[in-house]
Design a protein around this nucleic acid. Structure first.
Length: 361
DNA sequence: GGTGCCGGGGA
DNA sequence: TCCCCGGCACC
């Protein structure tokens, strides 16, 4: 299904639909700011890595702060767009550009519906029995969507990807949280147009969507800001849209070796590229390594993710028909040579019940 | 039954 | 990443 997101009438209609759906989930009367003390820490968070995450987050912000100043401070708040972008936009307004043009957490904007969600009321819980008041705040909405769409993907992954919009104009590294904002930026700053009526869609070619893994970023930022951005992350769209625009980037900031400057330092439309990392939990980015009958298993070539994919996707064949097992080598192995008594003399692999490294075939 | 080692899990 | 072990195929 394709929606013409540039059709103003359609936009308004869909925006209304969206609001109606949102209010159906959480009645407006029950929407209230959540005290920052309620912001949960993900259960799997390790305190030991916190300092590193802070450093990384600081690095991100430092890099961003070097971007040229381009935002028009008078820009009006973006209007939600239909479809998935509406979700992203409406719920991502807490990641907004400050008036200095730098991308940052805007903690002053408390009016947008993307501020931390309140605990759902009892009524809401009746409607969505999977929700419990004790659930993490940042999982409330995703949980409901999880329930409604029977998403089999573990909910932990749902909040990690944040879509941002980056200006691709040469020497402009503007990053905004909304497509309408970046369109306005391109239109007014680069194309020299002043009003929306001037728009012919050309600005679409000068920005790209980038997906940022917010897990680690927000971990670091959570200690730098009074409210945790993770509490207002966008409800996930699973599988996440591989963006409709012809240009998109996916940037995983989850690992320390992911070069943050990559996010910000490139740009010119012609240099566009897709950046993807092979992360085991990056659900929709699926690499499937099929194992054919008779293929010799090659452990070194199997990544963690492929292990998971294989586990999920490959139906075990009858043992008699497998034939995938590596033929037993002729050489004597550590076990045979040294015996169980001298197990400490075995090679490491043998001790770990792995393929012998000392007496290879 | 002994052996080799894959796959998975815990720390 | 290290270490261990269940489990399975091969001998």
């Amino acid at each position: 299904m394709h929606l013409d997101i540039r059709n103003p009438g359609k936009q308004a209609e869909l925006a209304n639909n969206f609001r109606a759906a949102q209010e159906w989930i959480i009645p407006p009367s029950e929407m209230q700011p959540l005290p920052s003390s309620h912001i949960p820490v993900p259960r799997n968070r390790r305190p030991s890595g916190h300092a590193d995450k802070e450093v990384m987050a600081a690095t991100v912000l430092t890099s961003l702060s070097t971007s040229p100043l381009v935002l028009n401070p008078s820009s009006a708040p973006p209007v939600p767009e239909p479809g998935s972008r509406a979700w992203k936009d409406v719920l991502s307004n807490s990641y907004s550009s400050s008036t200095s043009g730098n991308w940052s957490w805007d903690t002053s904007d408390q009016s947008v519906p993307s501020t931390p969600s309140p605990p759902l009321s009892n009524d809401a819980n009746k409607n969505f029995p999977l929700l419990t008041p004790g659930d993490d705040v940042n999982e409330d909405v995703p949980e409901s969507t999880h329930f409604m769409f029977e998403d089999p993907i573990p909910r932990k992954r749902k909040n990690s990807m944040k879509v941002m919009f980056k200006c691709l104009w040469k020497n402009c590294e503007k990053v905004l949280s909304t497509s309408s904002g970046i369109q306005r930026h391109v239109r007014t700053v680069h194309l020299g147009r002043n009003t929306d009526s001037d728009s012919d869609g050309e600005e679409d070619f000068y920005y790209s969507e980038i997906e940022i893994n917010m897990d680690s970023l927000t971990e670091g930022l959570s200690s730098l800001t009074p409210t945790s951005p993770t509490t207002c992350g966008p409800p996930p769209v699973f599988p996440p849209p591989l963006t409709a625009v012809p240009h998109s980037e996916r940037i995983n900031m989850n690992s320390s070796h992911s070069p943050t400057p990559t996010l910000l330092s490139q740009s010119a439309p012609s240099t566009l590229c897709h950046i993807r990392t092979d992360h085991a939990y990056q659900g929709p980015v699926i690499q499937v390594r099929t194992v054919s009958i008779g293929e010799k298993r090659q452990p070194a070539a199997i990544t963690h993710s492929t292990v998971i994919k294989n586990h999920a996707l490959i139906t075990p064949a009858p043992k008699s028909a497998l034939g995938t097992r590596k033929p037993r080598g002729e050489a004597k192995k550590c076990r045979k040579v040294y015996g169980m008594e001298k197990r400490d003399m075995w090679c490491t692999a043998c001790r770990w019940k792995k393929a012998c490294q000392r007496f290879t075939d």
